[in-house]
Write a protein that binds this DNA or RNA. Structure first.
Lengths: 223, 223
DNA sequence: ATTAATTTTTAGATTAATCTAAAAATTTAA
DNA sequence: TTAAATTTTTAGATTAATCTAAAAATTAAT
């Protein structure tokens, strides 16, 4: 403790956390370079630094994984990111496709007092505008089980609870076709060839969705 | 344009602006080093960089002053700082003595959309929690009633608080003769025939101004 | 199981921001 | 008006984060 992370270090920790969500294998140097839009050589260097600070586990040529303190840091950053997104959408009237970039900056503001007061001000929300869960002050994440719309079969019903990524083009498109969190959705037909779907939405009726879209939409598993 | 300032550059510009608010002379290298908690040699280097970017006027051994674009940047930063302070105090229940450091971070968030929406959300406040005026979206600070420089008489003193119009040619000319907002000005002589003036400015000493220019410059009325 | 392809690391430079120490210019004072 | 004191600048290094090019290790393929 004592030493707070640089902006760059925070971005590495966050990227490792996000790539690592399927932790069967360690996060590779190239994957990190891709995610951070930098070069593998740069990643190699930074990895050594983070390893030295015991934020990650690292063995040459074997990739990296977050340590306990690394995970804690990652969750703090993600908590801030998502809380700020709630603020931007709920109080400053931004659309869900406009907040990611601004939150990328706000997530690095250092003050736990600020984060916790913001949390209270917002009413301690549990999900952000894209349906992603917001870790609490202790880093605990509350996520109900979900599956991808693309994994559903004909005649299945479910509630839209999230969007897998924050690409503004995707979000704007979903806006345009009136898809948003909380809607009930029913798969009416699945096309075997390209996995495109016809789905039934409350007021809109039946619309067509490509696999590129259905693979980004999260549906509550139980309900 | 196109070039956005680094965090360090922003801090220099802001420091120059703030030291310059009591401007009898240009801002000295040592004063900046003090204010920024750094060494004079470092300041010397950075000064060259900012001068090269035309954000400040600089002559070796003569200190620095902000250019028009430098002042504009400073006001943007100060606007953000003060608006965030209002947010922290009015909505997150911070005390007025707790917000400076957090606002020092928040002032560097880059999104004019964000600042303007925040401004609206806060109800377009004109002063921050410490009573300092908040510049509006165009960088104008509301310092109470003002009059035109051209309406002043001999020996009157005042503070320059604005320029009546945004004609680039006028503003470029004012830059060139080092006239900028915040300066104290004293009318030393008025020419009855054409209303031209001689005025005394902090560092520059006495300069001559035509009525075409004095009729564009706003001076604080009371003070 | 070698060879080929890919991934990862090292080596050596570069840029921004900083420092210390020394030189140069300006200001103050005797 | 010279000399002393102060301020400012230059010169040369340092650190963090980055890059390119080349070497080393791992993985995949014939």
């Amino acid at each position: 403790m004592g030493n707070s992370l640089s902006l760059t270090e925070e971005n590495y920790i966050k990227a490792i956390f996000q790539i690592g969500t399927t932790p069967e294998s360690n996060v590779s140097t190239n994957a990190l370079a891709d995610s951070l839009q930098t070069k593998p050589a740069t990643v190699s260097d930074m990895i050594k630094k983070l390893s030295h600070k015991k934020l990650i586990f690292y063995e040459k040529y074997k990739g990296v994984a977050l340590s306990a303190s690394g995970s804690k840091e990652a969750l703090k950053i993600i908590r801030k990111h998502r809380l700020w997104e709630v603020f931007l959408v709920n109080h400053l009237n931004f659309k869900w496709d406009q907040v990611h970039e601004i939150a990328e900056q706000l997530e690095h503001i250092k003050s736990s007092e600020l984060v916790n007061r913001l949390d209270d001000f917002l009413g301690n929300p549990t999900i952000d505008p894209h349906g992603d869960p917001i870790p609490d002050a202790k880093g605990r994440v509350q996520l109900g089980p979900s599956k991808l719309l693309s994994e559903m079969t004909s005649h299945e019903k479910g509630i839209i609870v999230g969007v897998k990524n924050e690409d503004p083009l995707l979000l704007q498109h979903l806006d345009k076709i009136n898809i948003r969190l909380g809607l009930q959705i029913e798969v009416t037909e699945v096309n075997d060839f390209d996995q495109s779907m016809q789905v039934n939405l409350p007021d809109l009726g039946i619309i067509f969705l490509s696999e590129k879209i259905t693979s980004q939409i999260l549906i509550a598993k139980n309900s």
